[in-house]
């Protein structure tokens, strides 16, 4: 028995910069997870994953991952994904300082 579908976002790393990006509803990639399209329908999520296969010249290693709705936009469920929205905890580097 497969588990019930939980909402997801499609995420990847940028080809040149290597940082985390998320797929938006208009099929562009954003560096801010809040802009991401929250995929609440499994069929749509699969469709987006297939779309990502055509994006190999923009991003690397796309995958679907759990997310939740919030007033500001989708937010992560798992701590690993939270770190991807921020950057490392030992230095103020990465997205937490907008770089």
């Amino acid at each position: 028995m497969s588990r019930p579908f939980t909402p997801k976002v499609l995420t990847a790393n940028d080809l040149i910069e290597g940082d985390a990006v998320w797929l938006t509803a208009d099929e562009t990639w954003s560096r801010d997870m809040a802009d991401a399209e929250l995929l609440e329908d499994e069929a749509v999520a699969q469709e987006r994953l297939i779309f990502s296969l055509t994006q190999s010249d923009v991003v690397v290693g796309a995958y679907l991952v759990d997310a939740e709705a919030s007033p500001a936009g989708p937010v992560p469920v798992h701590f690993r994904e939270t770190f991807r929205t921020r950057g490392p905890s030992n230095y103020a580097h990465g997205k937490q300082v907008g770089a």
């Binding site: 290597g18 940082d19 985390a20 770190f83 997205k95």
Partner: peptide, 13 residues
């Protein structure tokens, strides 16, 4: 790239 020591991590190469 791996043959040349270049990995992709969480936030960057």
């Amino acid at each position: 790239r791996l043959m040349n020591g270049l990995y992709l991590q969480l936030h960057a190469y």
